[in-house]
Simulated scan of single mutants.
Amino acid sequence: MGKFKQEDHKLTFRVSEDILLELPEEDVMYFSERKITKAKPVVLVFSVEEDGRIEKIGFVEFDLRVLNRNAYITYYVSPVWRGRGLGKLMLKKAFDFAFRELNLHRITAEVYEYNERSLKLLEGLGFHREGILKEAKYHDGRYWDIIILGMLRENWKDR
């Protein structure tokens, strides 16, 4: 859903299979980039060799905003590999890739307030808290805040 197409200097926006709207070009700036582009996420899968076999330990996904040169991240470390510093190593390598190869300007993370390990990890890597979505996550019978964190390319360079 939500795809822009330019035909003969008219800009159209597909809202759904049945609905197509024409928009003046100057109104495009009011739409989220996710509605304009269909950039595929970049997923880095990390593995280690153990006892002669390759074991996947986790992944880092970048949900790209190519026009704005930023991405939202999702990451995961398999439970058997946690507590060994591998999540930190994965993220360091992924951020190097994102800023050097993908040429990103910014990386954004949304972390549920109860995920204290993730908050500590990201802040230890140079992310800063930028905002809170109050009671935006329902889990285990209650509402929790979502904490927005960000890191700019210049802050990563300074590390």
Rank of each mutant, 00 (worst) to 15 (best):
R117Y: 15
Y76H: 14
G83L: 06
R159T: 15
D158R: 15
I107Q: 00
K40I: 04
Y114D: 12
Y114T: 13
R69C: 04
D96E: 13
A94N: 01
H139G: 00
M90E: 03
P24H: 14
E123Y: 05
E135G: 02
K93Q: 14
E26Q: 09
L119N: 02
V45R: 13
R84H: 13
G85L: 05
F46L: 03
R14A: 07
L133N: 04
R82I: 10
V77G: 02
F4P: 01
Y143D: 08
L89N: 03
Y72S: 11
R159Y: 15
K40T: 06
K5R: 15
E26S: 10
K40H: 04
G83Y: 02
E130I: 02
L91Q: 00
G131H: 07
Y112R: 11
V60C: 03
F62Q: 01
V42C: 08
K5A: 14
K3R: 08
L89K: 10
E61P: 02
A94V: 04
I107F: 02
I148T: 09
E49G: 03
I57D: 01
L91Y: 01
L149T: 07
F127P: 00
K10F: 07
L91V: 03
F99H: 00
N155R: 14
E17F: 05
V43Y: 09
H105L: 04
I107K: 00
G124P: 02
V111K: 00
Y112E: 12
T12F: 15
K3Q: 08
N115Y: 05
E55K: 07
G52W: 06
R100M: 14
G2L: 10
K10V: 10
V77K: 01
P79I: 12
H105F: 05
K38R: 14
K38G: 13
E26R: 06
W144S: 08
E26K: 08
T37A: 14
A39S: 14
S32V: 07
N155Q: 14
R82F: 12
L21G: 03
V111C: 05
F99P: 00
P79V: 12
F95I: 10
